[in-house]
């Protein structure tokens, strides 16, 4: 088809400038350059509609005094400039202090969750690298939490974590006798641990999946060569396995970090609309500020700050390796 069109067009143009054959190729090259854009168009439009435009809308709303009085007619909400921002970054008032606390909780939770998920993932991936009986079955089992719908899995965990009827307390208190009183898991300070366990349970299979896939690309000859040189298990792990996994790790850690940091589903299903203070993740915190106290301007300002933070983290994370490589090269030269 492409060729037909090209010949037809160059046939029209041909007689006018018979001496410049390069011109004949132009319509085709324009066609070429247009095709990829046409193919990207649906994806672009959808991303614009669902992500970019609402995001800009969110930035705009963060500049408005959009409280419950203006919900029906939000265009009438007064422009307040940066007042919402000043309010939420001021740690001396309640809103600012709460946001800072929520941010600290989220950061601690995310680092712990991503670290544990990665550790479990890499351990299981390395231990299932060599064939053994039942490996396929075990892999399938490990992937199951990832396949389960979030709310079904998390609601099951909330049953396990019930104080009186739950399995966790039954094992810890009745069977192992590790505690005198039955602890609460879904309220109070323990809720942080509960949230962490559920989150790791849900995310480590994804790390396992990615790392297993990454390990399949490590050439067996590398291990054979290392074994011939007398390299033991740990040296092979340190000098072959982990370096070969670096490209996977780089993406995996970033994706896990962003997903966990923004996770709304797990705490929402586990705790409901209002999370306990010890597990007040930022997405829930903003949801509550927006939909429970109906102050959307304030909620939007917090969301924008959250986005800026994630942007900076991602940019630094992506730029750091190449920066290091460049400075190392410079010092080598």
């Amino acid at each position: 088809m492409a060729q037909l069109t090209t010949t037809a067009t160059s046939g029209v143009r041909g007689p006018r400038r018979p001496d410049t054959p390069a011109r004949a190729g132009r319509p085709r090259s324009r066609r070429r350059t247009l095709t990829p854009y046409l193919m990207l168009l649906p994806a672009l439009l959808l991303e614009l509609l669902v992500h970019l435009v609402p995001m800009l809308g969110g930035v705009w709303m963060s500049l408005l005094g959009l409280t419950q009085f203006f919900i029906r007619n939000w265009t009438a909400a007064p422009f307040v400039g940066l007042r919402n921002y000043r309010l939420v970054v001021n740690v001396n008032n309640a809103a600012g202090a709460d946001l800072l606390h929520s941010f600290a909780v989220t950061l601690a939770f995310t680092v712990a969750s991503v670290g544990l998920a990665w550790l479990l993932g890499v351990t299981a991936a390395v231990l299932t690298q060599n064939r053994f009986r039942g490996r396929g079955l075990l892999r399938t089992l490990f992937l199951t939490p990832y396949a389960l719908p979030t709310y079904a899995a998390v609601i099951t965990w909330s049953f396990l974590l019930q104080r009186d009827a739950g399995m966790v307390n039954h094992v810890l208190v009745d069977q192992l006798g590790l505690a005198q009183d039955r602890p609460f898991w879904l309220i109070g300070n323990n809720s942080f641990v509960a949230l962490l366990v559920v989150s790791v349970w849900r995310t480590w299979p994804f790390a396992f999946l990615c790392l297993t896939a990454g390990l399949q690309n490590v050439p067996q000859e590398l291990y054979e060569a290392a074994a011939m040189d007398g390299g033991g298990f740990w040296r092979q792990l340190r000098h072959i396995t982990l370096p070969m996994l670096r490209p996977v790790n780089q993406v995996l850690v970033l994706v896990l970090f962003l997903w966990t940091f923004n996770d709304f589903n797990t705490p929402f299903v586990l705790f409901g609309r209002a999370a306990p203070r010890a597990a007040d993740l930022i997405s829930i915190h903003i949801y509550q500020s927006s939909f429970v106290t109906w102050n959307f301007g304030l909620g939007s300002a917090m969301s924008v700050l959250l986005l800026l933070f994630l942007l900076v983290v991602t940019a630094v994370y992506l730029a750091a390796p190449s920066y290091w490589a460049r400075s190392r090269r410079r010092s080598d030269a």
Partner: peptide, 27 residues
């Protein structure tokens, strides 16, 4: 714009859903 597109699309992964929930609802 090829690289820009790839980066832009992947970066939507980092948007906190809560940020565009309400504006999207209004749209």
């Amino acid at each position: 714009g090829r690289r820009l597109f790839s980066v832009a699309v992947l970066s939507t992964q980092m948007f906190p859903g809560i940020l565009f929930l309400l504006p999207l609802f209004l749209i």
